[in-house]
């Protein structure tokens, strides 16, 4: 079955006809060519595919594109201001919060949702929030440091 969907992605209106089975992450990567959102596990555990739907972080491998019909979607491509990195992205670069970088888009989208509900998270709160984001390189320490630095930069911006 084909369904007609439309949604706002990073501020732009998008409409398409897709197979009802299409996952949101596949719609973003294959149909929209927004390949910053990654597929790590495809089983809703690793968090590489985290994006925002109507302002909340979700795993886009476990939501149908059709479920996001009419929604406001933000992906990693939508957070920078042109060539100027978002303070959270800058904090990851500054604090060596990534090595291979595969998990980073999901980490940053997850972190930005945390800052929405808690502008000044403690180290423990950051670690608990990252329950759903796996990194196999860094050991998390610098990711936590990056998120706290990014939160500080956002508070001061």
């Amino acid at each position: 079955m084909t369904v007609s969907i439309s949604m706002t992605i990073n501020g732009s209106s998008v409409s398409a006809d897709v197979d009802a089975r299409t996952l949101l992450v596949d719609f973003l990567r294959v149909n929209q060519r927004l390949t910053g959102t990654h597929v790590g596990c495809d089983t809703s555990q690793c968090g590489a595919c985290v994006i925002h739907v109507n302002g909340k972080s979700v795993k886009s491998c476990t939501i149908l594109a059709a479920q996001a019909n009419g929604a406001d979607v933000t992906t990693i491509e939508g957070v920078a201001n042109g060539s100027e990195l978002h303070p959270m992205q800058e904090a990851f670069r500054e604090n060596h919060g990534l090595q291979c970088g595969f998990c980073t888009p999901g980490m940053i989208m997850s972190a930005l949702d945390l800052i929405n509900v808690n502008a000044d998270p403690s180290e423990q709160e950051v670690r608990e929030w990252l329950e759903g984001n796996l990194c196999r390189c860094t050991g998390y320490h610098n990711i936590v440091k990056s998120i706290q630095a990014g939160a500080k930069a956002m508070r001061e911006a």
């Binding site: 809703s44 985290v50 979700v58 795993k59 945390l114 329950e131 759903g132």
Partner: peptide, 9 residues
């Protein structure tokens, strides 16, 4: 339950 993204859905 689960993690923040699971709880959001």
């Amino acid at each position: 339950i689960g993690d923040p993204q699971v709880r959001n859905a």
